[in-house]
């Protein structure tokens, strides 16, 4: 009876991965074999130990908040506000507007659509110099294409924060861009900087770099507000 059941079948039985028919077949064999009963009990215990041991891990508080989209109504541009008002007047789905949180999000979305064409996130997470150069060139190209009123937020995390180090080989080119275009803002992930310090490789940031939030929050805020996203 024992050799009718392969080990992978027993594992699949314990993992509840068998069809009803296969399960009955395995159970029929197990019932008649004390060794198999013991083996199944061991596998179940092991499985349960893993769930319990890692389930008991103390999970640290997240150091990011993933902010939701929130914009006051009076900040909605005229075109978007008009679209909202007209939508309310013309549309049949007035019921959904009754929930204030939904309304707030809808207003933010209307704002997002109008903002998406002139606000860009450039995201860099690598210290690969060619990628950093590509990011700087992308910024130049965007300004050449869209004009000087453009807003570009350069958000870095992981090893990408090294772009903003005072000793970065791309420092001169970056400074030149900052002088030329007032719409460029620089953000370094707070956590990545802490990590670099802990490793004994602290980053000495150039001026104008904001670094009081994790990159994931900086990113979430802008994506919620409809910024266009470019990953380098």
């Amino acid at each position: 009876m024992r050799n009718k059941i392969e080990d992978y079948q027993l594992q699949a039985y314990v993992d509840d991965q068998l069809s009803t028919e296969e399960r009955f077949e395995v159970e029929r064999c197990i019932e008649a074999d004390a060794e198999l009963i013991q083996r199944v009990a061991e596998l179940r215990e092991l499985k349960s130990s893993i769930r319990q041991a890692y389930g008991d891990i103390a999970v640290p508080e997240p150091d990011f908040s993933l902010p939701a989209a929130k914009k006051p109504f009076w900040n909605v541009p005229k075109a978007a506000a008009a679209a909202l008002v007209m939508g309310i007047l013309l549309g049949g789905n007035v019921g959904f507007l009754q929930h204030s949180a939904d309304l707030q999000n809808m207003q933010a979305s209307a704002l997002n659509e109008s903002a998406a064409t002139d606000k860009f996130i450039i995201h860099i997470d690598s210290d690969d110099l060619s990628k950093q150069v590509a990011a700087l060139h992308k910024i130049k190209d965007l300004y050449a294409e869209k004009g000087p009123s453009l807003k570009v937020d350069v958000i870095t995390n992981s090893d990408g924060v090294r772009l903003f180090d005072v000793n970065s080989p791309n420092n001169a080119e970056l400074s030149e861009l900052l002088e030329q275009y007032s719409g460029i803002a620089l953000y370094a992930c707070q956590r990545a900087l802490q990590r670099a310090s802990l490793k004994g490789e602290p980053i000495h940031l150039i001026d104008k770099v904001k670094h009081n939030k994790p990159a994931v929050d900086e990113m979430a805020e802008r994506l919620n507000s409809g910024w266009s996203y470019i990953k380098i």
């Binding site: 939508g87 013309l90 549309g91 979305s109 997002n112």
Partner: peptide
Amino acid sequence: MKLSSKVANLFCAARDRREFNE
């Protein structure tokens, strides 16, 4: 696209973003 549909679409996109983040 009608304005009412456009607003409804914007509403859905905002709700999707909120649900996704949550």
